[in-house]
Design a protein around this nucleic acid. Structure first.
Lengths: 349, 349
DNA sequence: ATGCCCCGTGTAAGCGCTTACAATTAAGAT
DNA sequence: ATCTTAATTGTAAGCGCTTACACGGGGCAT
């Protein structure tokens, strides 16, 4: 049983392939009756279009490229996984595939040579995360493909972007430490200065501190891994011995900080509160369970795919920007009491 | 600047497109000099083939499908992520894309209607995990596409499969509990009876127990989530009050068990040792750090992609089976002392 | 020399779809 | 009754690649 083509439908119905094509693609100028009949037969035959032929004829690939910074030995972070899940979900619904590429810091400049960027392998590109170099992004932008930033923003340009409300989220969690727990001496653990999300989160933290007249204390880290969080805590101990709480730029570094606390006999949260940002899956399992800011990663992905496809199909929309809300997740690392119910995601094999 | 086609190269070199095609595809019957010249010009022009045209002409899609069971509200587990990473890596190298589909238990029967399964959207399918229904797999097998199982095996059939050494891994970790820690009263937490990996891991456990003349004690769980691990522990407490250790079928349930221990005032590992299987990223961060069996997930993915592509390009190889080794990861939940060095994977945003 | 075979290359027919343009028809305007 | 015009449909030319087949020209045996 061979796969039915447009031709097959055309013969069955007694029209030309042109008409069938028009009918199937919702194009105007087909008689309603004809269209109905074509759709009926198409369904009956179990017709599915040949993506290849469609691609060839339209010079479109119906493929989205996903580009992500990847520190080489590291595994893909769960952070990306969720975004990818969202992208994939939406893309498939609209008839697109997604191919993923990881770009290493070292080869950022070579990366443009990768087949995915070679014109006409993808219809558009989603660039995820704050770690991709600006120059790299701009090169891509000034080439031919539509691109969209997720969880990143290049303010000098007007490249479309979808981000979460970093400022608001960090503001809220900092305020929680201040208002509920009465902690005023707070230190912010930031990622690299030029990372968009780090910058914004620091802003939220500073804003909350400004309201109580405290001056900000920031420690900058070259990356945002667990180990770096531990190192940062040691530094903080040195610089700010009177600190009462840490607002970490993400969960990984928060966990690292807590780890260092344990090694140094500091009780979290009673001697030092530590909160993160991300709401990683194992946050509730951690000891103490991690207070954090939830970002709607899957939604981020869905919106990204949706907008990119809109760009592709309906033309560019320079300066488009979407900002998703966040949710404060109170657990125990801030000093709050245990709550009854807990959800544990992530299953195994 | 328009993308150069075969035609362009042909004109430059002064040959026909047929010859160019042959040269570029390493096909025989092209004069070495001609071939060299063609390759030179192709590089010079920055030629990249049009996947679409190639697809159309060869009736191949150069796309691999990845199918995974996904309990709907759950996020993608990190378990899959690593396998995917491996598959993606290898596939891209060989010029293939990967598209992913998640199949829900409810819609397993409808799933066959999904576009990805409709003939000619993919050249082959990789089915990951033990939770996909056998009937579903067999339907796929008896249709047209080459398929390959990862971390699963249908013994009645001879569908190709790549698995890790579940038996050996669990045998080794059980033996560690017995030999090093002198624990003999061990309970195995199993996933569903018909899951391949659960069955094999149980075997490894039983084998180790048999050697010291102990009879196996197994608790079957309907799924392998953290929460289920907690429930299982409660059952185990009831049935086997004298138990000294738990061998869990995976890390998630091990963690769940430990959680339940904490709630019931049982000290892990001193009153009860608990070990898992998987080596999830946050294992070293857990309290106590998780002793577990490492499976080489990325390698699993690489091998899977490699073999599937071989099947596609060189024809089927019924009954192919590859078994990857495992590695015992000793941390503290078995009762071993803390070790100095620890690695924390997973970074944040 | 003549015939054969093989090597290297060209010719051209698709693969399944889209789409500019032409053709047909019916309806409305005069 | 004739001319426009719009609605519907058909015709056919690609999109860039592969590949069966044809073709020409040595080299070799005879």
């Amino acid at each position: 049983m061979v796969k039915p083509s447009l031709q097959a439908i055309a013969e069955q119905v007694g029209v030309s392939t042109a008409t069938v094509s028009r009918a199937l693609n919702d194009r105007a100028g087909v008689h309603p009756d004809t269209r109905a009949e074509i759709l009926r037969i198409a369904r009956e035959l179990g017709y599915t279009p040949s993506v290849a032929a469609k691609s060839l004829a339209t010079a479109r690939t119906f493929t989205l490229g996903l580009v992500t910074y990847q520190q080489q030995p590291q595994p893909i972070s769960s952070y990306h996984t969720h975004i990818v899940q969202g992208i994939d979900l939406e893309a498939r619904q609209r008839g697109y595939h997604v191919i993923t590429t990881f770009v290493d810091g070292e080869m950022m400049s070579d990366a443009l040579r990768m087949p995915i960027f070679t014109e006409s392998r993808v219809d558009g590109l989603i660039l995820v995360g704050p770690a991709l170099e600006a120059s790299f992004i701009i090169q891509l932008y000034t080439s031919h493909v539509p691109i969209l930033l997720v969880d990143n923003l290049l303010s000098e340009t007007n490249i479309d972007a979808i981000v979460c409300d970093n400022v608001g989220g960090t503001y809220e969690i900092t305020q929680h430490l201040i208002d509920v727990h009465g902690l005023h001496k707070l230190v912010f653990f930031s990622g690299p200065k030029d990372w968009f999300s780090s910058r914004e989160r620091r802003l939220g933290y500073e804003q909350a501190l400004a309201e109580i007249g405290e001056s900000p204390r920031v420690i900058y880290m070259p990356d945002t891994t667990v180990n770096m969080g531990s190192k940062a805590l040691l530094q903080a101990l040195d610089h700010y011995p009177d600190m009462q709480g840490i607002v970490a730029v993400n969960d990984a570094t928060a966990v690292g900080a807590i780890r260092a606390c344990k090694e140094n006999g500091i009780d979290v949260p009673h001697q030092l509160a530590v909160v993160g940002f991300d709401n990683v899956a194992w946050g509730p399992l951690h000891e103490p369970p991690l207070t954090t800011v939830r970002m709607f990663k899957q939604e981020l992905g869905i919106q990204a795919a949706r907008h990119l496809i809109d760009m592709i199909e309906r033309g560019p929309s320079p300066g488009f920007q979407l900002r998703l809300g966040t949710e404060l997740i109170i657990r125990e690392s801030c000093g709050c009491p245990p709550s009854e119910e807990m959800v544990f995601p992530d299953q195994g094999s």
